[in-house]
């Protein structure tokens, strides 16, 4: 299953909710959620802990827009819009944590 997050982990609780609820699968961080995948962010530890259960990706255009392309946490994959579509197509279901 694919989980999509679009809010900063320091402003909202959607990524926490997702991590506390979902069993596993893919997580795609888009829009302001890309901040969760930047090194030095206090959320980094939680994200690293989740990597055992989830494959975590970020949408690269959103990362670049925010000037963070060089700050990504190791082990997080970067996808473009086509990769976004692939993730959606390769998963049976998708939950957007709005």
């Amino acid at each position: 299953m694919l989980h999509i997050i679009n809010k900063s982990p320091l402003t909202g609780t959607t990524l926490d909710s997702c991590l506390n609820t979902a069993a596993g699968g893919d997580i795609l961080l888009i829009e302001d959620a890309v901040y969760a995948a930047t090194s030095g962010n206090v959320f980094e530890e939680k994200l690293r802990a989740a990597m055992g259960r989830f494959r975590i990706s970020v949408l690269r255009p959103d990362l670049e827009a925010r000037g963070l392309a060089d700050k990504i946490v190791d082990g997080v994959s970067q996808v473009d819009y086509a990769g976004f579509v692939d993730l959606a197509a390769n998963n049976k279901t998708c939950q957007s944590w709005l």
């Binding site: 255009p61 959103d62 827009a65 925010r66 000037g67 963070l68 060089d70």
Partner: peptide, 8 residues
């Protein structure tokens, strides 16, 4: 610094 918004 370094914001590049072309992609979005």
């Amino acid at each position: 610094k370094g914001q590049q918004t072309k992609g979005i």
